[in-house]
Structures are given as C-alpha cells and as structure tokens.
Design a protein around this nucleic acid. Structure first.
Lengths: 241, 241
DNA sequence: TGACGCCAATCTGTGCAGGCATGAAGTCTC
DNA sequence: GAGACTTCATGCCTGCACAGATTGGCGTCA
C-alpha cells in the first residue's frame, strides 16, 4: 500500500502502461491524471518524471505525455520488473529473467568461489543444510525462502554489484513460480545435492566446480518451466544507432 | 549538453554523488540545491524524485535528502552507469560490466542461433566481413564501431529484451577500452575469425557453436583488460531480508 | 482551382513563487 | 524513562508567466 501520493501516482500510471491498459503511442494529459487521482500538478509532474526516467513515457510540449512502446522501457528497472511480473506479460518476464539467471548464476558461483569472504561460505553451507532438511520434510514454504536466500547470497558473494542487484527480481521469480504451481511437489534429491555442491565448491574455493554445479541447477530449472512461455512471442527490436 | 533545467539538476547532483564529491550518509537540503543551481523548488523536487528512483538518495521529512551508499544504487540504471564510467570508479564499473558480458553474451549467441530472424543473420554476416576488412587494414576507429554494432546485434537477436538492453552500456564499455588504450594495436586474426564463426553459427542455427565461439571472444577480452581493475576492491554487501 | 509556404493563435509542458499541512526529531516536562 | 510539545524540512497545493510545438488560416504562386 503506497502511502505517499507520489508513489500512488507512479503506481497508478506505470502499472496501467505495463499491463497494456494504456497502449503504446497513446497520449495522455497531465490534467487527466490530476482528475483521475484527485491530486495536484506537482504530484503528477514528479510521477511523470520518474516514469520518463524508466523509459515508459516522454513528455513534449503542446502534445502531452506519450506512452512509449515496450522496447523503450528499461527492463532492469525494479518498478518495470514488478509491474511486468504482476501483469499479463508474466510469461515473457519470467522467460527473460530465467534466461538471465542461466547466464549469470554460474558465473556468479565461479566468482564467488574465487572471492567470497569466509562468513559468506559459512552461511552458504548452513543454508544448503537447511534446504536439505526443509526439502526432505516437504516444507515447501520454508524451502522457497531458503532457496531465495541461497541464490541471493551466491550473487552477493560474487562481489559484482550488478549480479548482487539481480537478487530481488530473481527472488520474485522464484516466488512467482511457486504461486503458479511450477515447482515440483517436493524438491528433487539431486537439486538438494547440487546446492550442497555449490556451497562446498565455493567454500573450498574451486571455481570450476562451483560453476559446474550451478549450471546443473540452472539447466534443470530452465527445463522445468520453459513450457510457461513457449507460446510467448519474442521481440526483436533492431538496435538503434 | 542538458537543455532542460531538470536534466541539469539531475546531472549536477547525481554525478557528484556517484563520483564521491557528496559522500554517502551526507544530508543535503533541497534549498541548498536551489541556491547552488539558481533554480526553483519544483525543479529540485522533480530531480530528487528521479535520483531517489535510482536509489541514490532518500528524502525524509524534517531531515532532508540523505545520500545513500553505493550498494543501494541501482547498478543497471543508465544514468548511474554513465556517471560511474565517467568518474574515478571507472575500473570497478568496467569490471562489473565485463563480467556481465562474459556471462551474458555466450548465452545471447546461443539464443540468437535458435531464434534470430533472417535479416539479423544477414546483417551479422555482413558486419563480420566488414570487421575483418577494417581489422586487417588497421582502421581501429571503424573496427570499434563495427564491433559495437556486432555485439549489440547479437544481443538483440537473442530475443531477450534484458540482453538487448545491455547493448548500450556494453558499447560504452568498448569505447572506454579504446580510449584507455586497452585494445590491441590491431585486432588479432583469431578474434576476427571468432566473430566470423559466431555469425556463421547463428546464421546456420547451431546454438552450441555460437556459444562456443562467443565464449572464446569473451575469454580473450576478459584476459586483455582484467589488469585494469586488479586493485579495485570488491564489495560484499550482505543481502537484506 | 489547388498546392505550397508562412504566420499567428492555441495548447500543454516547464519553471517560478508562495502558501499551508504533515510528520519525524529533538526538547522539555513530569 | 514516558509522554506532550516545539521545530523544521519535506509533502502537497495553487496561481502565474513562459517556451515550444502543432494547427489552421491566410496569401501567394503555378
């Protein structure tokens, strides 16, 4: 529940753009938004500036606020990711993020094995053990939270802040999967072992093993859910000069 | 050259935060910024909102505008990336982006081989040929631009909009490398071949080959410039609940 | 007559100035 | 130490002037 008018305005307009209620190319007027939400110009203008910085709109004089097409949106903006996950475009967003995971997490595991501080290793080992316990006892909710923390920790342990920053959307992805019932009834025994292997390899500072085990996890993950977006069209916007 | 007061204000404050002129934890007042830039409250407020959406600041009542530490910045925000590349933190930003490239580009090549439309294939082949020509004739400037377009095109051809969106910062990275004199005097013959191989594999729709050739390129790239950031400290912020 | 080019009216965002409301910090009192 | 009070910067609102882009009308010329 957004508590400031500013947040509410950003949310109101942004979510409608991302879910398609306001089509690309459409032009809206600041005064429209004022009326719809019953807020003043300053609130609307600040909200529009934020949306513009995310690539959702451009505002030009004499014409108004033009809604930009999806290829102009910043797909890494936390707001955009959240709105996409919450909307009909869920499948496409899940695919993009999962493909990104498949690319990034093995690299993150490799870097973590090279650079992770000791306290991260200890916590990773502890999390892997807890995951095994929760997985075997069938406590899916606990397993999910541990899984999220595990992957976030590997990303952070890589020492690459761009990787670390992907933890939040990836966590949302995992939550989204369980909500959609795309997780196996109980975690595979192999998955539990692979997570343990990743933690072991990072703790032992063996980059190749860490990468290999994480690759196994990602390959399996990708298989399990690639059906969701099978029919989602891919977009190929040509790069601009 | 920013033409609106808003852009100027965002630029002024944001770049000073990123380059460290304004330290994390410091608190600035909106009225300060007004005086510094000679602009009105509305301009400052809109700028602050944009900076807040990038995670650079938070503004609280009775306190002012608090500058957040780097781990709170959104490392994927285009503004943040630009400011980091332009500032003393260049080394760290170059490392993050390069590690991201190493992770993402092979995957992008693989996906491109699976999904790329025909017109992308044709252009890739053409670019590879032009790169070979420019490389052998020693025209570094032309080679750089072709290289940027080539990698941007592979990312776009993956059909993953998050990958495609990385084209701009990656292009900046490549330009940054040449400006720093980190590129070889003339491109290696092997590099020319590998680019050709990537284009061929994508056009022939052979994902494994595309990935393999791109991995070679990335491995070489990483070797060539990892010296730049050798002394740059890695940061390991613990993931928050 | 019809097409082109120029100019003014108009519309909307941009920026300014000032006002009151709100709520978090710090202070004082008990 | 807990609660009420004061303080002060941001949150939010409003009226005004300005700038820039679009539109439509006007006149000219082919």
């Amino acid at each position: 529940m957004p508590n400031s008018l500013h947040q509410r305005a950003v949310e109101h307009v942004g979510s409608r753009i991302v879910d398609g209620s306001i089509a690309a190319g459409e032009v809206i007027l600041a005064s429209q938004i004022e009326d719809e939400l019953g807020v003043s110009r300053s609130v609307v203008r600040e909200a529009v500036r934020v949306l513009a910085s995310a690539g959702l709109v451009v505002s030009t004089k004499r014409v108004g606020i033009r809604v930009l097409p999806p290829e102009d949106w910043n797909p890494f903006d936390p707001l955009v990711i959240r709105w996409r996950l919450a909307s009909g475009g869920l499948g496409a967003q899940l695919r993009s993020l999962t493909e990104l995971r498949v690319a990034v997490e093995p690299m993150a595991a490799e870097l973590a094995a090279e650079h992770a501080p000791d306290e991260f290793c200890g916590e990773l080992l502890s999390l892997a053990a807890q995951m095994r316990h929760a997985g075997r006892s069938g406590d899916l909710a606990a397993f999910l939270e541990l899984d999220i923390r595990f992957h976030a920790l590997v990303l952070a342990a890589s020492g690459n802040e761009m990787f670390a920053n992907l933890a939040h959307p990836i966590g949302e992805t995992l939550r989204g999967r369980t909500e959609l019932g795309l997780m196996p009834e109980r975690p595979h025994e192999e998955a539990l072992t692979w997570h343990q292997d990743v933690a072991d390899a990072i703790s032992a500072h063996v980059p190749q093993d860490a990468r290999a085990s994480m690759e196994k996890i990602m390959r399996r993950t990708n298989q399990e859910i690639c059906g969701v977006w099978a029919e989602q069209p891919r977009l190929f916007p040509h790069p601009k000069a």
